[in-house]
Design a protein around this nucleic acid. Structure first.
Length: 315
DNA sequence: CGATGTCAAGGAATC
DNA sequence: GATTCCTTGACATCG
Protein backbone atom coordinates (compact mmCIF):
# COMPACT_ATOMS: atom_id res chain seq x y z
CA UNK A 1 0.00 0.00 0.00
CA UNK A 2 1.17 3.46 -0.89
CA UNK A 3 -0.29 6.67 0.53
CA UNK A 4 -0.67 9.57 -1.86
CA UNK A 5 -1.27 13.30 -1.79
CA UNK A 6 -2.60 15.77 -4.33
CA UNK A 7 -0.97 18.66 -6.15
CA UNK A 8 0.41 20.90 -3.40
CA UNK A 9 3.52 20.24 -1.33
CA UNK A 10 3.07 21.78 2.09
CA UNK A 11 6.34 20.34 3.40
CA UNK A 12 8.20 22.55 0.91
CA UNK A 13 5.98 25.56 0.30
CA UNK A 14 8.34 26.95 -2.30
CA UNK A 15 7.72 23.99 -4.60
CA UNK A 16 5.09 24.74 -7.23
CA UNK A 17 2.73 22.29 -8.84
CA UNK A 18 2.64 23.76 -12.35
CA UNK A 19 3.38 26.82 -14.45
CA UNK A 20 0.30 28.86 -13.61
CA UNK A 21 1.29 32.11 -15.29
CA UNK A 22 -1.38 33.79 -17.36
CA UNK A 23 -1.49 33.27 -21.08
CA UNK A 24 0.31 36.54 -22.03
CA UNK A 25 3.33 35.35 -20.01
CA UNK A 26 3.41 32.20 -22.13
CA UNK A 27 3.48 29.46 -19.52
CA UNK A 28 5.06 26.24 -20.71
CA UNK A 29 4.91 22.55 -19.94
CA UNK A 30 8.70 22.46 -19.68
CA UNK A 31 8.48 24.79 -16.66
CA UNK A 32 5.85 22.57 -15.06
CA UNK A 33 8.05 19.54 -15.64
CA UNK A 34 10.98 21.20 -13.91
CA UNK A 35 8.67 21.84 -10.96
CA UNK A 36 7.56 18.21 -11.06
CA UNK A 37 11.16 17.05 -11.06
CA UNK A 38 11.77 19.09 -7.89
CA UNK A 39 8.67 17.58 -6.28
CA UNK A 40 9.90 14.07 -7.09
CA UNK A 41 13.28 14.83 -5.55
CA UNK A 42 11.55 16.06 -2.40
CA UNK A 43 9.36 12.95 -2.34
CA UNK A 44 12.40 10.71 -2.52
CA UNK A 45 13.96 12.55 0.42
CA UNK A 46 10.74 12.42 2.43
CA UNK A 47 9.85 8.81 1.66
CA UNK A 48 6.68 9.59 -0.30
CA UNK A 49 5.51 7.31 -3.10
CA UNK A 50 2.27 8.55 -4.62
CA UNK A 51 1.35 11.90 -6.12
CA UNK A 52 -1.52 13.44 -8.08
CA UNK A 53 -0.34 15.98 -10.61
CA UNK A 54 -2.13 19.22 -11.35
CA UNK A 55 -4.62 18.85 -14.21
CA UNK A 56 -3.17 21.98 -15.81
CA UNK A 57 0.38 20.64 -15.79
CA UNK A 58 0.34 21.39 -19.51
CA UNK A 59 -1.07 24.92 -19.54
CA UNK A 60 -3.91 25.67 -21.97
CA UNK A 61 -3.18 22.34 -23.63
CA UNK A 62 -6.73 22.10 -25.01
CA UNK A 63 -7.92 25.69 -24.65
CA UNK A 64 -10.11 26.19 -27.73
CA UNK A 65 -8.97 29.76 -28.31
CA UNK A 66 -5.24 29.24 -27.74
CA UNK A 67 -3.96 26.76 -30.29
CA UNK A 68 -0.43 28.09 -29.82
CA UNK A 69 -0.31 26.05 -26.58
CA UNK A 70 -1.49 22.80 -28.11
CA UNK A 71 1.90 21.44 -29.20
CA UNK A 72 3.78 21.58 -25.92
CA UNK A 73 3.65 17.83 -25.33
CA UNK A 74 5.49 17.30 -28.61
CA UNK A 75 7.96 19.98 -27.58
CA UNK A 76 8.73 18.27 -24.26
CA UNK A 77 8.98 14.57 -25.08
CA UNK A 78 12.46 14.16 -23.64
CA UNK A 79 11.61 16.04 -20.44
CA UNK A 80 8.45 13.98 -20.07
CA UNK A 81 10.41 10.78 -20.41
CA UNK A 82 12.94 12.07 -17.88
CA UNK A 83 10.42 12.84 -15.12
CA UNK A 84 8.68 9.56 -15.87
CA UNK A 85 11.95 7.74 -15.28
CA UNK A 86 12.48 9.71 -12.09
CA UNK A 87 9.07 8.62 -10.83
CA UNK A 88 9.72 5.02 -11.75
CA UNK A 89 13.12 4.97 -10.05
CA UNK A 90 11.52 6.41 -6.90
CA UNK A 91 8.70 3.89 -6.94
CA UNK A 92 6.26 6.77 -7.29
CA UNK A 93 2.74 6.21 -8.57
CA UNK A 94 1.63 9.30 -10.51
CA UNK A 95 -1.92 10.14 -11.53
CA UNK A 96 -4.23 12.88 -12.71
CA UNK A 97 -7.65 13.93 -11.56
CA UNK A 98 -9.61 15.71 -14.29
CA UNK A 99 -10.68 19.19 -13.21
CA UNK A 100 -14.36 19.65 -12.25
CA UNK A 101 -15.17 21.29 -15.56
CA UNK A 102 -14.29 18.20 -17.51
CA UNK A 103 -17.75 16.68 -18.01
CA UNK A 104 -17.68 13.68 -20.29
CA UNK A 105 -21.44 13.14 -20.05
CA UNK A 106 -22.35 16.75 -20.80
CA UNK A 107 -25.56 17.33 -22.73
CA UNK A 108 -23.73 20.12 -24.51
CA UNK A 109 -21.82 18.64 -27.44
CA UNK A 110 -19.06 21.25 -27.38
CA UNK A 111 -18.48 20.77 -23.66
CA UNK A 112 -18.24 17.05 -24.20
CA UNK A 113 -15.80 17.52 -27.07
CA UNK A 114 -13.61 19.78 -24.94
CA UNK A 115 -13.77 17.31 -22.06
CA UNK A 116 -12.81 14.44 -24.32
CA UNK A 117 -9.87 16.46 -25.65
CA UNK A 118 -8.69 17.14 -22.10
CA UNK A 119 -8.75 13.47 -21.14
CA UNK A 120 -6.92 12.54 -24.33
CA UNK A 121 -4.25 15.14 -23.57
CA UNK A 122 -3.79 13.89 -20.00
CA UNK A 123 -3.42 10.35 -21.32
CA UNK A 124 -0.84 11.57 -23.82
CA UNK A 125 1.15 13.09 -20.97
CA UNK A 126 1.14 9.82 -19.02
CA UNK A 127 2.08 7.89 -22.14
CA UNK A 128 4.90 10.31 -22.93
CA UNK A 129 6.20 9.81 -19.41
CA UNK A 130 6.17 6.09 -20.23
CA UNK A 131 4.34 5.35 -17.00
CA UNK A 132 2.79 1.94 -16.28
CA UNK A 133 -0.95 1.26 -16.35
CA UNK A 134 -1.31 2.16 -12.67
CA UNK A 135 -0.89 5.84 -13.66
CA UNK A 136 -4.54 6.67 -14.19
CA UNK A 137 -6.83 9.61 -14.86
CA UNK A 138 -9.65 9.85 -12.33
CA UNK A 139 -12.93 11.44 -13.31
CA UNK A 140 -16.54 11.65 -12.17
CA UNK A 141 -19.62 10.70 -14.16
CA UNK A 142 -20.67 14.35 -14.50
CA UNK A 143 -24.03 16.12 -14.34
CA UNK A 144 -27.61 14.90 -14.11
CA UNK A 145 -29.12 17.04 -16.86
CA UNK A 146 -32.56 16.23 -15.54
CA UNK A 147 -32.41 12.56 -16.50
CA UNK A 148 -30.06 10.17 -14.74
CA UNK A 149 -30.49 7.21 -17.07
CA UNK A 150 -29.87 9.24 -20.22
CA UNK A 151 -26.91 10.98 -18.63
CA UNK A 152 -25.38 7.67 -17.52
CA UNK A 153 -25.82 6.44 -21.07
CA UNK A 154 -24.07 9.51 -22.43
CA UNK A 155 -21.04 8.76 -20.25
CA UNK A 156 -20.92 5.20 -21.58
CA UNK A 157 -21.22 6.39 -25.18
CA UNK A 158 -18.49 8.97 -24.63
CA UNK A 159 -16.22 6.39 -23.05
CA UNK A 160 -16.78 4.05 -25.98
CA UNK A 161 -15.84 6.85 -28.37
CA UNK A 162 -12.51 7.61 -26.69
CA UNK A 163 -9.33 6.45 -28.39
CA UNK A 164 -7.92 3.29 -26.76
CA UNK A 165 -4.95 5.19 -25.32
CA UNK A 166 -7.33 7.37 -23.31
CA UNK A 167 -9.63 4.48 -22.40
CA UNK A 168 -6.69 2.61 -20.91
CA UNK A 169 -5.99 5.47 -18.47
CA UNK A 170 -9.47 6.53 -17.44
CA UNK A 171 -11.00 5.39 -14.13
CA UNK A 172 -14.25 6.43 -12.49
CA UNK A 173 -14.96 7.75 -8.99
CA UNK A 174 -18.28 7.89 -7.12
CA UNK A 175 -19.27 11.45 -6.18
CA UNK A 176 -20.89 12.92 -3.10
CA UNK A 177 -24.20 14.06 -4.61
CA UNK A 178 -25.27 12.66 -7.95
CA UNK A 179 -23.66 9.37 -8.91
CA UNK A 180 -23.13 6.82 -6.17
CA UNK A 181 -21.29 3.51 -6.33
CA UNK A 182 -24.26 1.69 -7.89
CA UNK A 183 -24.12 4.15 -10.80
CA UNK A 184 -20.39 3.85 -11.35
CA UNK A 185 -20.69 0.09 -11.07
CA UNK A 186 -23.37 0.09 -13.76
CA UNK A 187 -20.98 1.98 -16.01
CA UNK A 188 -18.22 -0.46 -15.15
CA UNK A 189 -20.40 -3.37 -16.24
CA UNK A 190 -21.02 -1.69 -19.58
CA UNK A 191 -17.50 -0.45 -20.26
CA UNK A 192 -15.02 -2.29 -18.04
CA UNK A 193 -13.79 1.00 -16.58
CA UNK A 194 -12.09 0.48 -13.18
CA UNK A 195 -13.68 2.13 -10.15
CA UNK A 196 -12.09 4.32 -7.50
CA UNK A 197 -14.06 4.11 -4.28
CA UNK A 198 -14.06 7.44 -2.46
CA UNK A 199 -14.86 6.61 1.13
CA UNK A 200 -16.12 10.04 2.16
CA UNK A 201 -18.28 10.40 -0.94
CA UNK A 202 -19.60 6.92 -0.22
CA UNK A 203 -20.58 7.93 3.32
CA UNK A 204 -22.29 11.07 2.02
CA UNK A 205 -24.06 9.45 -0.92
CA UNK A 206 -25.11 5.87 -0.30
CA UNK A 207 -28.78 5.71 -1.28
CA UNK A 208 -28.85 1.91 -1.36
CA UNK A 209 -27.36 1.61 2.14
CA UNK A 210 -24.55 -0.63 0.96
CA UNK A 211 -21.93 -1.69 3.46
CA UNK A 212 -18.55 -0.06 3.17
CA UNK A 213 -16.73 -3.38 3.28
CA UNK A 214 -18.74 -4.95 0.48
CA UNK A 215 -18.44 -1.75 -1.56
CA UNK A 216 -14.68 -1.67 -1.12
CA UNK A 217 -14.45 -5.26 -2.30
CA UNK A 218 -16.72 -4.53 -5.24
CA UNK A 219 -14.66 -1.54 -6.37
CA UNK A 220 -11.28 -3.25 -5.95
CA UNK A 221 -12.44 -6.15 -8.10
CA UNK A 222 -13.17 -3.87 -11.04
CA UNK A 223 -9.43 -3.45 -11.67
CA UNK A 224 -7.40 -5.63 -14.00
CA UNK A 225 -5.41 -8.30 -12.18
CA UNK A 226 -2.09 -6.71 -13.13
CA UNK A 227 -2.94 -3.16 -12.01
CA UNK A 228 -2.95 -2.27 -8.34
CA UNK A 229 -6.29 -0.62 -7.46
CA UNK A 230 -6.55 2.61 -5.59
CA UNK A 231 -9.12 4.30 -3.41
CA UNK A 232 -9.67 7.79 -2.02
CA UNK A 233 -9.76 8.39 1.71
CA UNK A 234 -10.57 11.52 3.67
CA UNK A 235 -12.33 12.56 6.83
CA UNK A 236 -15.00 15.26 6.96
CA UNK A 237 -14.06 18.57 8.41
CA UNK A 238 -15.80 19.28 11.68
CA UNK A 239 -15.04 22.93 12.31
CA UNK A 240 -17.86 25.43 12.22
CA UNK A 241 -18.77 26.50 8.73
CA UNK A 242 -19.61 30.11 9.42
CA UNK A 243 -17.94 32.70 11.58
CA UNK A 244 -20.92 32.79 13.92
CA UNK A 245 -20.05 34.82 17.00
CA UNK A 246 -19.31 32.88 20.14
CA UNK A 247 -19.98 34.15 23.66
CA UNK A 248 -17.25 36.56 24.56
CA UNK A 249 -16.27 37.29 20.99
CA UNK A 250 -15.68 40.87 20.05
CA UNK A 251 -18.59 41.85 17.85
CA UNK A 252 -16.22 42.92 15.08
CA UNK A 253 -13.32 40.51 15.42
CA UNK A 254 -13.43 39.55 11.76
CA UNK A 255 -10.41 37.69 10.53
CA UNK A 256 -9.35 36.32 13.88
CA UNK A 257 -10.74 32.90 13.19
CA UNK A 258 -10.05 31.54 9.74
CA UNK A 259 -13.03 31.40 7.38
CA UNK A 260 -12.95 27.65 7.16
CA UNK A 261 -15.12 25.10 5.64
CA UNK A 262 -14.61 22.22 3.37
CA UNK A 263 -15.42 18.58 2.98
CA UNK A 264 -11.90 17.59 3.87
CA UNK A 265 -10.21 17.68 7.22
CA UNK A 266 -6.63 18.82 7.61
CA UNK A 267 -5.35 15.38 8.62
CA UNK A 268 -6.66 11.84 8.55
CA UNK A 269 -8.06 10.23 11.68
CA UNK A 270 -5.74 7.24 12.08
CA UNK A 271 -8.34 5.11 13.87
CA UNK A 272 -10.86 5.59 11.08
CA UNK A 273 -8.14 4.73 8.61
CA UNK A 274 -7.14 1.53 10.39
CA UNK A 275 -10.79 0.46 10.57
CA UNK A 276 -11.02 1.06 6.84
CA UNK A 277 -7.95 -1.02 6.03
CA UNK A 278 -9.17 -3.83 8.25
CA UNK A 279 -12.30 -4.17 6.13
CA UNK A 280 -9.96 -6.24 4.03
CA UNK A 281 -8.86 -9.39 5.81
CA UNK A 282 -5.48 -9.54 4.12
CA UNK A 283 -2.69 -7.03 3.79
CA UNK A 284 -4.12 -4.29 1.62
CA UNK A 285 -2.98 -4.65 -1.95
CA UNK A 286 -4.31 -1.26 -2.97
CA UNK A 287 -3.06 2.31 -2.84
CA UNK A 288 -4.78 5.11 -0.99
CA UNK A 289 -4.95 8.71 -2.14
CA UNK A 290 -5.48 10.93 0.89
CA UNK A 291 -7.63 13.96 0.26
CA UNK A 292 -6.54 16.00 3.23
CA UNK A 293 -5.81 19.68 3.39
CA UNK A 294 -2.41 19.08 4.92
CA UNK A 295 -1.44 17.15 1.77
CA UNK A 296 2.00 15.52 2.09
CA UNK A 297 2.12 16.42 5.78
CA UNK A 298 -1.03 14.35 6.29
CA UNK A 299 0.62 11.39 4.56
CA UNK A 300 3.73 11.65 6.71
CA UNK A 301 1.69 11.93 9.89
CA UNK A 302 -0.51 8.98 8.99
CA UNK A 303 2.56 6.89 8.23
CA UNK A 304 3.84 7.66 11.73
CA UNK A 305 0.44 6.94 13.27
CA UNK A 306 0.24 3.58 11.53
CA UNK A 307 3.67 2.67 12.85
CA UNK A 308 2.34 3.38 16.33
CA UNK A 309 -1.20 2.03 16.25
CA UNK A 310 -1.16 -0.65 13.56
CA UNK A 311 2.41 -1.60 12.67
CA UNK A 312 1.19 -4.71 10.87
CA UNK A 313 -0.55 -2.40 8.38
CA UNK A 314 2.19 0.20 7.96
CA UNK A 315 4.46 0.05 5.01
C1' DC B 1 3.94 43.63 1.87
C1' DG B 2 -0.61 42.39 2.93
C1' DA B 3 -5.08 42.25 1.12
C1' DT B 4 -8.09 41.78 -2.47
C1' DG B 5 -9.24 40.50 -7.20
C1' DT B 6 -8.99 37.41 -10.99
C1' DC B 7 -8.78 33.35 -13.71
C1' DA B 8 -10.22 28.72 -15.40
C1' DA B 9 -14.21 25.97 -16.21
C1' DG B 10 -19.96 23.70 -16.18
C1' DG B 11 -23.91 22.61 -13.65
C1' DA B 12 -27.35 23.10 -10.13
C1' DA B 13 -29.91 25.74 -7.12
C1' DT B 14 -32.06 29.92 -6.07
C1' DC B 15 -34.58 33.93 -6.85
C1' DG C 1 -33.82 34.14 -17.41
C1' DA C 2 -30.31 35.93 -14.57
C1' DT C 3 -27.53 35.43 -10.60
C1' DT C 4 -25.05 32.93 -7.16
C1' DC C 5 -22.65 29.16 -5.41
C1' DC C 6 -19.49 25.47 -5.68
C1' DT C 7 -14.04 24.86 -5.59
C1' DT C 8 -9.28 26.36 -5.38
C1' DG C 9 -4.38 27.44 -6.13
C1' DA C 10 -1.62 30.78 -7.70
C1' DC C 11 -0.90 34.78 -10.37
C1' DA C 12 -2.02 39.82 -10.79
C1' DT C 13 -3.17 44.04 -8.99
C1' DC C 14 -4.17 47.41 -5.61
C1' DG C 15 -3.45 50.32 -1.57
Amino acid sequence: MRLGFAVQVLGRPQLRSHDARRAPQQPHLSVSLAYLRDILVYMAEAGLHMYRMHPDLAPYITHPEMPQFHHQIDECLSELEYVGQLARLGGVRLSFHADPYTVLNSADAETQTRSRAKVIALARLLDAMQLPAEAVIVTHVGGLFGDRATSLGRFIACHDSLPPAAQRRLVLENDDRYYALADTYHIHEQTGIPLVLDRLHFLLNNPDHLSLGASLELALNTWPADVRPKVHFSSPRTEMKALAPLPGDDADAGGVRPPLWSNHSDYVNPFEFVDFLRLRPTQPNFDVMLEARAKDLAVLRLQRDLDTFAPELAM
